[in-house]
Design a protein around this nucleic acid. Structure first.
Length: 797
DNA sequence: ACCTGTGGCCTGCTTC
DNA sequence: GAAGCAGGCCAC
């Protein structure tokens, strides 16, 4: 069996990607029964036009037959019936009628296709328009600080600042505290925005955009939101940065000031944003400072983009997936839907109408091995599967429509049980018992292959260009966009809310992966090596050397997998194990938590400034104490650091532990040292609240209780907000006392900070590295409380 | 039309 | 102190 079937990287991209002379489409929005289409002609003129919203469903031409087609044409709800080859398109006058008829046809055993597709997506899929080259503008506004966000309708806008990607800056300041002056201020903003197509603001979806919308309406300005794409730059930063963040410190805050400081080495202007009203009211220098602060913010937004290129990448992804680069277009489901519907349409394939209200049991996921080694383990070799899930999808030809179901599945299972051989024409997944037909290529494997082909094309082009040039950056973005798209397919198949959901397919993907790892571990063990760890797509092997392990990996690729996959009926083989790195030493705290230092990474020898690899430890977590992170970082450095590391005497670490213990119990502590940060992942009201057995309301988690307090003080405490707090007194008579960070007075519960928050994470790591040494005694610093007297004794007095 | 997935560790709260 | 639950964040 050939190891590689895809050799099409030389071919040019599809026609979709080639430049054309059609108008650029900047935005399409669904309003009532029409679509608002924003377009720009080659001469640069922009216009908004109305189109009838397309409400369509497809049926199979062969099944529907000419007579039923006639009946449909005579139905008053039907606008048009058109045969388009294999499928017949039925257009409806209203969306609810389209959905009703789909359900009725489905009930009568006539399958319908794509009947639930949103009209904007329908339009995009039918047209495959040329995505506009959106002119980007960064925006920030300052509003009356005396009002909370919940009263945005009454919240006067005090000033605005915009900066185009081209560097053009404009500012507007409220002249006087009157409605007329504000109307004038906002009208100027609207005029300036006409030159742009995409508006980016930090936290824009939760603040700037809704406030502006509310104020435009309040001041009765004529305003069509659909003219622009609205992009919350913070949301895409969070999404794209998730993959890149190195330490926990970077994750504690998504405030623009903190991000800019970390990224650009320069934060926001020194100005208290909670005092905008006072600053505006004072006028003069105070007011000018507020305006400067606002201008600086928009400039930071622009520079964050120049540094990260995330909006540029989003635009490329949007182009690739036939969606718009706004906040919504950053969702993987939206991207995958856009890509798959477009690919299906181009290849004459339509997807079944999505069923509503499916909810399903969770399915089994990846294989994670308990670490099999204690202490400091030397010379551990790591191999992983390249693009595991996409390659499984192609190798087994897994797709919702190639999955064998019902009676045939039973027949094939019986046949397999009797003969011990996978029936011809099908592939088999051992751990789920699912079969996939292999006589036709599934739409999902087809999509994965197309994405892989295009990724190769752009990578090859990138390699031919001088690094850093605009052409190189563009090719790099294209390649990255395709990689992201390829990885999102599996998640979308596993999501019950997506139209491509198939529990069996998703579980077969993960279980084929688990099976592959287990085969690999078994083979390594049979050769006398020791598998010490593995997670999803990786194996960690000790008791071998570099040459032997290289030979083993090659043998897996050339012999082991091909033979096993033929037995399972796989039509091709994209499975590829790659030797990634060797750890000189590695310490496992538990599954998903370890630290190690390299001998080499992908063949390149580690140098004195190579950083150790740290996974999952509190050092990497944004919700741990800074003191806990710094303490653990020092211990990690002594354990596995390149220049300071390599210590193997526990007493070296005892000194460090005692120094940190003294510092925390007696030294100076700042708020930043001891505060915890946790996100609100729901609206405050959505959190479960229990009633205790005694009838009182139970306590909620500290960050939720604190968030309620802050809300009462007028802070915005919506979903996504990070709550900062600290432990003031763990032994307070009314139960543990947590306080909001803003209530910091320089005091906290030092014993609690050390015993419960700072020491345990590192204690676990030390115990993992030196299992025979007792690390517990350093963790009990709180003095014993005088024993509480029993109520009886008290009463007797 | 809020919404990619599962596996795993850990904390805080309540009850037994 | 153990067990069960909610919730957050991380590995993949």
């Amino acid at each position: 069996m050939p190891r590689r079937l895809i050799k099409r990287a030389e071919l040019p991209p599809t026609a979709i990607e080639q430049a054309d002379a059609r108008p650029e489409v900047l935005n399409v929005t669904w309003a009532g029964d029409s679509l608002l289409v924003v377009e720009r002609d080659p001469d640069g003129s922009t216009r908004i036009r109305n189109e009838r919203a397309p409400y369509c469903a497809f049926v199979e031409t062969l099944i529907v037959g000419p007579e039923f087609a006639r009946a449909l044409r005579n139905d008053i709800r039907v606008h048009e019936v058109r045969e388009e080859g294999k499928y017949t398109r039925i257009s409806f006058k209203r969306r609810d009628q389209c959905l009703d008829i789909c359900q009725a046809l489905q009930g009568n055993g006539m399958p319908t296709y794509e009947g639930d597709v949103n009209p904007v997506r329908r339009w995009m899929t039918d047209r495959m328009p040329r995505l506009g080259n959106h002119r980007i503008v960064y925006l920030d506004i300052e509003t009356d600080s005396r009002l909370p966000f919940s009263r945005k309708e009454e919240m006067r806008v005090l000033c605005w600042a915009i900066e185009g990607a081209d560097g053009v800056r404009k500012v507007g300041v409220l002249e006087e505290n009157t409605d007329a002056a504000e109307a004038q201020l906002l009208q100027r903003l609207l005029n300036e925005l006409q030159r742009y197509d995409l508006i980016a603001a930090w936290n824009g979806d939760r603040f700037d955009f809704p406030v502006l919308q509310a104020r435009f309406e309040k001041r009765r300005l004529s305003f069509v939101a659909a003219r622009w794409l609205w992009l919350d730059q913070m949301v895409i930063f969070q999404r794209m940065n998730m993959m890149a963040a190195e330490s926990g410190e970077e994750k504690t805050s998504f405030k623009l000031g903190d991000i800019a400081t970390a990224l650009l080495g320069e934060g926001k202007d020194d100005f208290d944003a909670a005092k905008t009203w006072e600053a505006w009211h004072a006028g003069g220098d105070e007011r000018r400072r507020m305006v400067r602060y606002c201008v600086k913010d928009t400039n930071l937004l622009k520079r964050v983009e120049e540094k990260t290129g995330y909006i540029g990448l989003l635009h490329t992804l949007a182009e690739t997936c036939n969606v718009f680069p706004d906040t919504r277009g950053a969702n993987p489901t939206i991207q995958a839907e856009g890509f798959l519907l477009a690919l299906g349409a181009a290849q004459g394939y339509r997807f079944p109408t999505a069923k509503v209200g499916i909810h399903s049991e969770k399915y089994k996921g990846a294989y994670v091995m308990e670490p099999q080694c204690k202490g400091i383990t030397k010379n551990v070799h790591v191999a992983d599967f390249a693009g595991l899930y996409p390659s499984i999808i192609v190798t087994w030809n897994m797709s919702p429509e190639t999955l064998v179901q019902g009676e045939l599945h039973k027949q094939l299972s019986d046949e397999y049980a009797q003969t011990g051989k996978v029936p011809w024409g099908y592939s088999y997944v051992t751990l789920t018992g699912c079969f996939f037909r292999t006589d036709v290529e599934g739409i999902l494997p087809r999509a994965v292959k197309e994405v892989m082909r295009l990724r190769k094309y752009w990578n090859k082009l990138k390699a031919s260009l001088p690094p850093g040039t605009p052409e190189w950056v563009a090719a790099n973005r294209k390649a990255t966009a395709y990689k992201i798209a390829a990885n999102s397919f599996y998640g979308v198949v596993g999501s019950p809310l997506s139209r491509f959901f198939s529990r069996d397919v998703a579980e077969s993907v993960t279980q084929a992966g688990a099976w592959l790892i287990i085969q690999t571990i078994d083979a390594a063990t049979a050769r006398g090596m020791t598998a010490v760890y593995g997670d999803t797509d990786s194996v960690f092997i000790a008791g071998t050397n570099r040459t032997e392990f290289e030979v083993f990996v090659e043998w897996c690729n050339v012999d082991l997998y091909p033979a096993k996959l033929v037995e399972l009926g796989c039509p091709e083989n994209l499975i590829d194990l790659a030797y990634e790195k060797e750890f000189e030493r590695v310490v496992f705290s538990c599954a998903k938590k370890y630290a190690g230092r390299y001998v080499h990474f992908k063949g390149t020898a580690a140098t004195a400034d190579s950083k150790p690899e740290v996974k999952g430890l509190e050092f990497k977590r944004g919700d741990s104490l800074r003191l806990a992170r710094n303490f653990q970082a020092e211990v990690v450095d002594l354990l596995v650091g390149m220049t300071n590391g390599g210590h193997e005497d526990p007493l070296t670490f005892v000194e460090v532990v005692e120094r940190w213990q003294q510092r925390i119990l007696h030294g100076e502590l700042t708020l930043e040292d001891v505060q915890l940060s946790k996100r609100l992942n729901k609206e405050l009201g959505q959190y479960a609240q229990k009633v205790k057995n005694d009838g009182e309301m139970g306590r909620q988690l500290p960050h939720i209780e604190i968030a309620k307090q802050l809300l009462a003080r007028g802070h915005d405490m919506g979903e996504g907000v990070k709550v900062h707090y600290f432990i003031a007194d763990a032994k307070h008579p009314d139960g543990p006392l947590y306080l909001a960070a803003e209530d910091w007075q320089g005091q906290c519960d030092r014993w609690e900070v050390w015993d419960r928050m700072v020491y345990p994470p590192t204690e676990r790591l030390l115990t993992a590295a030196f299992p025979t040494f007792d690390w517990a005694p350093w963790g009990k610093t709180r003095p014993k409380m005088p024993r509480k007297r029993k109520v009886k004794e008290e009463a007797a007095e």
